[in-house]
Amino acid sequence: MLELLEKTAKHNGLVLAFALVGLVMIVSMQLSRRLTFGRVHGSAIAILIGLGLAYWGGIQTGGQKGLADVTLFAGVGLMGGAMLRDFAIVATAFEVQVVEAKKAGLVGAVALMLGTVLPFIVGASVAWGFGYRDAVSITTIGAGAVTYIVGPVTGAAIGASSEIMALSIATGLVKAIMVMVGTPMAARFLRLSTPRSAMVFGGLAGTVSGVSAGLAATDRRLVPYGALVATFHTGLGCLLGPSLLYFATRSLVG
């Protein structure tokens, strides 16, 4: 009986993921309403529960993909994987108001540029502070502070050690998680209420996952504006990391 149930679950991974996420959503919506009286958005709680499940999965299996490494829940990997994530993000563009997006075009580009250079400088300074003195390590850790994809791409391009790469990925991951969890709480401070502000946020906060989850938990209508800019973030970082930023770092630390 139990075996049969397990077989059903294993053979219908994606469908099981739909049911599981639905359950997580119900629980979060109830928690949001009953415990916080709607002050903390249900989606924010759902994302926190998701991260909690990922931690549990990581502890259980020792793998790198959180809950998706548990064979029973492999379908979560498909549902939350890059393919469906990007598909759903593109679909949100259906609600974008062209006039609003155009109005924020320039400020979005400025935010994008700042969102790449500022985290890099901060990350590189922290690396310097912890005693890293070679340009390759400093650049790789700095790039990780941009996003967790820019880090390893940059590191691979300039020949960083795997230990530094892991550190760089971890930096980006911690940042993404902080953005996911912190955005709804900081929404008022960030003045996150208009399409323009969402685009500034998308450019500066970086990482599509962090931005999209943070905005989803703050105000769903802002998601497409933030995502539209954030999606260029990783590309710009991968472009500048191994080139301009590396050369600049090398000329500074010799």
């Binding site: 993921a17 739909f18 996420v21 639905g22 997580v24 959503m25 989606s43 759902a46 994302i47 926190l48 529960i49 998701g50 991260l51 499940l53 990922a54 931690y55 999965g57 990581g58 502890i59 790198q64 993909k65 959180g66 809950l67 998706a68 829940f73 979560v76 990997g77 549902m79 939350g80 994987g81 469906l84 994530r85 759903a88 993000i89 679909a91 949100t92 892991a166 550190l167 990925i169 971890a170 930096t171 991951l173 911690v174 993404a176 998680i177 996911m180 996952s209 999209s212 989850a213 989803a216 769903r220 998601v223």
Partner: peptide, 20 residues
Amino acid sequence: YIPVVVAMAAQQNVVSALRS
């Protein structure tokens, strides 16, 4: 979109991020 993001959160490498 939001359910997909929740599933995405559930497969992040949280353990290594917290232990780094």
